[in-house]
Amino acid sequence: MEKKRRGMTLANKQLAAGWLFLTPATILIFIMSFYPIFQAFITSLKTGKGVNIAFANPLNYNYSRMLQDSIFMTSMKNTFFYLIIQVPIMLVLAILLAQLLNNKDLKFKGLFRTCIFLPCATSLVSYSLIFKSMFATQGLINSVLMNLGIIHENINWLGTPATAKAVIIIALIWRWTGYNMVFYLAGLQNIEYSVYEAAKIDGASGWKTFWYITCPLLKPTIVMTAIMSINGTLQLFDESMNLTSGGPANSTITMSHYIYNQAFGQGVGQLGYTSAMSFIVFILVGILAFISLKVGDSRD
């Protein structure tokens, strides 16, 4: 009897310890993520500035206002443009590089991997500034193209909407391809070599092996990198802010950048409207992650 009671308290102690270990992290996540997103939703239903903030009439006022805000619509279009062009190119390139590097006959593997992974060592602001100076009107790219005789007058890369977007996409691909490649390399290493040997004996070509063996086995990794890239691109901020400042005339501005400008740019921020826009970003992240998971599931 005595022994049993002591055992119970020990078990209780263990139980309490378990909960205690995860308490700090849980509290922090609730205060720093869940509470603010809830707060953002409530605020998104309000209008007014500073102390005069009150519930809007009608409640969806801020949400319908967004549809008429041409800069917000542009920022949304831009963000999706970056997403649709950049993410597929980057992921395909990353898989290709990982596949090439996963060859046991290849020499200098470590050197190639380090070089391609190297851009990840720069901060987002740093590489934005490097690309900004390379693509400046008076800059490296223009002077190289001039010397090669390809162009005859300087191109204003960052001052023209189409080329400014292209520079952002090129910069993004440069910075993140190696990052994603690391995931695929880790994924490829989990695939047993014997699987490939078997495919070879069955007479499968390199391309077929890649398409029918490597890709299905990498699927969980592909889904994950896709979700991460979509998530990251939807929240693009540093590049838009530092590479183009959203310009010219807001033609390259991203959603996060516009929200930041509205909240902290100049004067008193319109909290209700800003919160509504940021809540839309949250919904979009959720929807796109859900779609990626579904797509990943169904292709068995």
Binding site: S33, L234, S256
Partner: peptide, 30 residues
Amino acid sequence: LYHDKGKDKLFGIILLAMMVPAVATMVPLY
């Protein structure tokens, strides 16, 4: 290492925080 049903459920909830973008919590957190 102390997992039980309750903690597994809580973990699932915590994972949802991954979907919360920084820009969405920026103003309330500020």
